[in-house]
């Protein structure tokens, strides 16, 4: 690993200042970034840690009833703090990686990374969440632009994510047993005005909304409503863990299970 300067600000303002330097990058829990740096796939000159910034920690509810989660909140804290207010999201966070990963990894780091098999992006898309940075607010529908691609600019910091809370929701993850990421993961969210379905792990274009299922489920919120649908295998990820056909099939099965578990 190349050496770098580690900075540990305690306010967003100081973090933004530190990130304005050349080759500076945020450090969340380091659960993705540290392995990446060991492989020399990243070599920042300065890392700006978010874990000491109190205003980026924790969960609260805003005036619109949205659950707002600080960008540096760990997966373990999300699990604990949303258990009664947003069980669908709490259940998702509880299944990320393993306990040690959940004690360090942060929601901001996960969303910024936009790994095609990461869990949170499915929840962000399925709820129509808003990603808040030090510069602007970005709708989830505009944020996830394909594998590892986001509109974040260099040094832009995710300070908070705001989730509209569904009436019912559930995340089903079919684990890739070696990495413990999602081979396929489906988040189903039912709102008063319709249903949204976010799918991760499956597509070569990264996380996506399955609109045919959304339409069917908005009329009839039951597993049978999706049982007759099929998803084209074209554009699905194929690797030694699962073929494109297999992943397409899993999306349907997991969507049905998520609906059953949510209702």
């Amino acid at each position: 690993m190349h050496n770098f300067e580690l900075v540990k600000p305690t306010t967003i303002a100081d973090a933004v200042q530190a990130l304005s330097g050349e080759d500076a990058q945020p450090l969340g829990g380091g659960q993705t970034l540290i392995p990446t740096m060991k492989q020399r796939l990243a070599a920042p000159a300065r890392l700006v840690s978010t874990l000491g910034i109190a205003e980026m920690q924790g969960v609260c509810t805003d005036d619109h009833g949205r659950i707002c989660i600080g960008g540096a909140t760990t997966h373990a804290s999300v699990t604990a703090e949303t258990a009664s207010t947003f069980p669908g999201l709490s259940g998702l966070a509880a299944k990320i990686g393993d306990p040690a990963v959940r004690n360090r990894g942060t929601i901001g780091g996960s969303v910024a990374n936009n790994d095609p098999a990461a869990c949170y992006p499915a929840a962000c898309l399925a709820t129509g969440a808003t990603i808040v940075t030090d510069k602007r607010e970005i709708a989830a529908d505009d944020f996830f632009q394909g594998m590892f691609a986001t509109p974040l600019e260099e040094g832009e910091l995710i300070t908070e994510i705001k989730f509209p809370v569904p009436q019912a929701s559930n995340y089903q993850k079919f684990e890739q047993p070696a990495s413990r990421f999602a081979l396929v993961g489906v988040f189903v969210a039912r709102f008063g005005d319709g249903v949204r379905v976010g799918v991760t792990g499956a597509s070569e274009d990264g996380v996506f909304r399955w609109s045919a299922a959304e339409e069917a489920l908005s009329g009839n919120f039951s597993a049978e409503a999706v049982s007759g649908l099929s998803l084209p295998a074209e554009g699905m990820i194929g690797d030694l863990h699962g073929s494109p056909d297999y992943r397409a099939h899993l999306v349907k099965v997991l969507t049905g299970r998520a609906v059953t578990a949510a209702s």
């Binding site: 580690l6 540990k8 380091g30 659960q31 540290i34 392995p35 060991k38 840690s49 874990l51 373990a76 393993d98 306990p99 040690a100 990963v101 004690n103 360090r104």
Partner: peptide, 25 residues
């Protein structure tokens, strides 16, 4: 590579992978 857990220690009472955290943190 953050996969095996042989390096797990407690930091402020929480289990973490000591190979995936900087000493200065």
């Amino acid at each position: 590579t953050s996969q095996c857990g042989a390096c797990v220690v407690h930091v402020d009472g929480k289990a973490v992978k000591a190979c995936t955290m900087f000493a200065a943190e």
